[in-house]
Nucleic acid binder design. Structure first.
Lengths: 142, 142
DNA sequence: CTTGACCCTGACGCCGGCGTCAGGGTTCGA
DNA sequence: TCGAACCCTGACGCCGGCGTCAGGGTCAAG
């Protein structure tokens, strides 16, 4: 299939696909006329990439994870280094989730207060602050 | 206090503070020499801003939420519009958390498999499941 | 008086993930 | 034979959240 078809099938654009390719996330064959060609498996791969990006990962992150995510784990070098990187990323993702969750809770609480009129005051800040602190500490695992 | 002190106290930089100001997130008085001046309350405010930004909100988002978050709710217009926006944002955050959590779990599973070829374990499945559940629960209010 | 630490206002730079334009080829149907 | 609809490679643009440099004041200590 050609780039336009792949883009449509995977829910993205040709431009993005070229971008992924040049970032080393996907590969393509070339037809005689120079057009990129893809096999059907590319659709799944690109979908996985999109999912990761949508979840807030960067192209760099995705590059690291891809071998594990399109079904052929055997092809992954699975070197100790890769595992380390993956673990670090996992920690970073956890931290991000924690931070967002903390904010979510705060926000939800604020909404409650605002919606429920001004009857009660700040009732559970200790718990929330604690969670926020944890998240921030976890943040740069560098 | 002056900008450098505030920055230090709030764990950020003078540059960022000027940026927040010009984005309408904080205000400052001016000394005779033109230096910005802040009162002690600014520290909390800036910390709140940082927390929101760390959690992936934009400055625009923060602008909407701020009145609810620095402790003087009375000052908040608490308009219905703000609430709507807040709710929408909350939903978006929930979705993002869910997506990231899904990725996290996939990734963790992949790691387990990869590590399992040599030595199995390394997992904290209970914690994982719990987190996933939380993320799911958050999505439902839509 | 000078030095150094702070402050000021612009304004440009960078990263990430593309969109978009420029300038050109190919292949198809009418 | 021509136009439309694809494809190609560059290269510049944009948004967000600042970093950083440029060029200049302020002020207390030595």
């Amino acid at each position: 299939m050609r780039i336009g078809e792949l883009a449509a099938a995977a829910g993205t654009t040709p431009r993005a696909l070229r971008h992924y390719e040049q970032a080393g996330l996907i590969t393509s064959g070339r037809a005689a006329n120079g057009y990129r060609t893809y096999d059907a498996g590319a659709v799944v791969r690109v979908r996985n990439i999109r999912a990761l990006l949508d979840a807030g990962l960067t192209l760099d992150d995705v590059r690291v994870f891809l071998p594990c995510l399109d079904g052929d784990v055997t092809a992954a070098p699975a070197s100790g280094r890769a595992l380390e990187v993956a673990r670090a990323r996992l920690a970073a993702i956890d931290a991000r989730i924690a931070a967002q969750t903390a904010v979510r809770d705060k926000l939800a609480a604020a909404l409650d207060r605002a919606a429920g009129t001004r009857a009660r005051q700040t009732a559970r800040p200790a718990e929330q602050a604690e969670r926020t602190e944890q998240a921030r500490r976890g943040r740069s695992p560098e």
